[in-house]
Design a protein around this nucleic acid. Sequence first.
DNA 1: TTGAAAGCGCTAACAC
DNA 2: GTGTTAGCGCTTTCAA
Lengths: 343, 343
Amino acid sequence: MVMEVDVKITINEIARRAGVSKATVSRVLNNSKPVSEEIRSRVLEVIEDTNFKPNAVARSLSLRKSHLIGIIIPDLSNPVFSRIISGIESQIRNLDYSLLITATDFDIDMKIQHIHILKDKGVDGLILVTDHGNEHFFQAMLDFEKPIVMIGSESYVKTIPVVRIDNYSAAKEATEYLLGLGHKQIGMVRGPLTDPQSGLERFYGYRDAMVAAGYYDESLVAEGWYSFDDGYRAMELLLSKKKSVTAVFCACDLMAIGAIRYATEQRINVPEALSVIGFDDVDVARMYSPSLTTIKQPFEESGELAIDELIEMIENKDRPIKNSHHILKHQLVVRESTIEIKK
Amino acid sequence: MVMEVDVKITINEIARRAGVSKATVSRVLNNSKPVSEEIRSRVLEVIEDTNFKPNAVARSLSLRKSHLIGIIIPDLSNPVFSRIISGIESQIRNLDYSLLITATDFDIDMKIQHIHILKDKGVDGLILVTDHGNEHFFQAMLDFEKPIVMIGSESYVKTIPVVRIDNYSAAKEATEYLLGLGHKQIGMVRGPLTDPQSGLERFYGYRDAMVAAGYYDESLVAEGWYSFDDGYRAMELLLSKKKSVTAVFCACDLMAIGAIRYATEQRINVPEALSVIGFDDVDVARMYSPSLTTIKQPFEESGELAIDELIEMIENKDRPIKNSHHILKHQLVVRESTIEIKK
DNA sequence: TTGAAAGCGCTAACAC
DNA sequence: GTGTTAGCGCTTTCAA
């Protein structure tokens, strides 16, 4: 162990100690060009001794590539989103990229601002997990000028790949399942219709199934935000409008649990007197009493797929744009909260 | 709107268009030195026109400061952790720093590896959310050479600030609350004792309260990982050892819910026949039926505090090290899952 | 006040 | 195969 005092270890220092040029060091570092075995091992030895790690910032500047991926997400503490991130993160570990994550609290101006910030930070690509956008938002996406992938929602920019599920079919399926159990008075607790996927599409799926069965009735529908409290309130409203509902389809699991809570407090037992079906299959769905019948979304998988797609775009810039639109499979998971209607 | 085709906008280009040197542009950008009003406004105008944003990577290289903060966390999709991150994120938005987040799946080698990776990426500081470490882990922390703050757990490196709650007192308080309700046969579903805070300290708090009351008995204790399933299994074990328990303190809310689930399946009603108290106060605690009495942890607040501390360390390097150890306040939240013992 | 120039640590084109 | 050198885009002495 030689005493080497405090010289900052850079590629220059390695070059000096190994008695070669820094270009050569760079070559062995990146395997970018052939280097004679003798020199290579000499350089590697010095690198080993000094525990040298190339400075990623300098490398970024030189390559104009940061190996950073930006993620913009509405809310980090919501499992629906954190599980997507978790999927992205676990997938990216092997790929030598890192994640720059920002949250927007569903504020559209914040989204726009974050796109700019992340661009300035030099991220190589962006994953947007978002509900809806406006003109400025799409302009910001255009201005970003590097690869973007969206999760969960459409983009009006047609060249941007999207990863999502078929919310319409999933909602229809959920409703049809309830119809199949003999329910006719099936209510829905829907999300805001300004939200194209989780709000609108899920409602349309429900509505069309109900219309087809001949049971659709506007007073069977209540609306709220995707939360326990709003599910509770919506159920209250629903029951005040239609005392006779025997089943409810909710736009997300938290709403479903809120709905169950309200019903239970009114001595309406789930599932005996009321069947409830949720959407998402977050952890609570399985843990709740009664456990929740729901539509399972592949959150982690969508994160993984999105990051794969994004890295592909980043590393093969020349590759023709595939305009890929990935529709992932959802799945109806039947548990305790739904039951055949009593005659 | 002049047609300016595709010249890359850099500080050089701004300088050229404004007819000044890039040093001057840099000065107006950073307010680092006086610039005559006339030139300043001329430069600002060009910047405005071109929508120029300085390249953060180049700036990092020059300043040897990345304005990036690394976060290492066990699991992104666990609300206990994602809420901490959420607190960090919301606090950092105003501060012109960005977050580089990595997850470790509770794997200690992964933690060490990520410390290195984040160091290479040039982050200015690190927040570690972790349970326990080993020698190599602490060595990696030392090698990091830049500010670190830990959340939730002690560090054996005494100069590293810690933000956490007093798990011992909180657990004791929870147990004493049950004692106060008249319970004597109080079980505990604890976490692994290898985990110093959530495992060991919470158990000690429980044990000491029970010993002081004269009711401690080893067969009242079962152990598991912090999950619904393990809570379920631990409750099963506990009841098989001690059929007479009337209350259980669990090391986290998920375990508590698992325990309730098992009890309910055995026709042991909560809270009538069994009082259950959790720990954390994650969202489920409030939403569950029965809603869960629990110890509320200030997750968001601990994230905010940690990031404030870290930024302070980063920006005032000279400042003497305060060896700050922040113990945040927990709070017992009484809900439906606990009740006075029936005589 | 302002500008010229060196330097942050690395990559890559070019020459040998 | 290897070295020389010119950047990458910015900040900051140092002179003027």
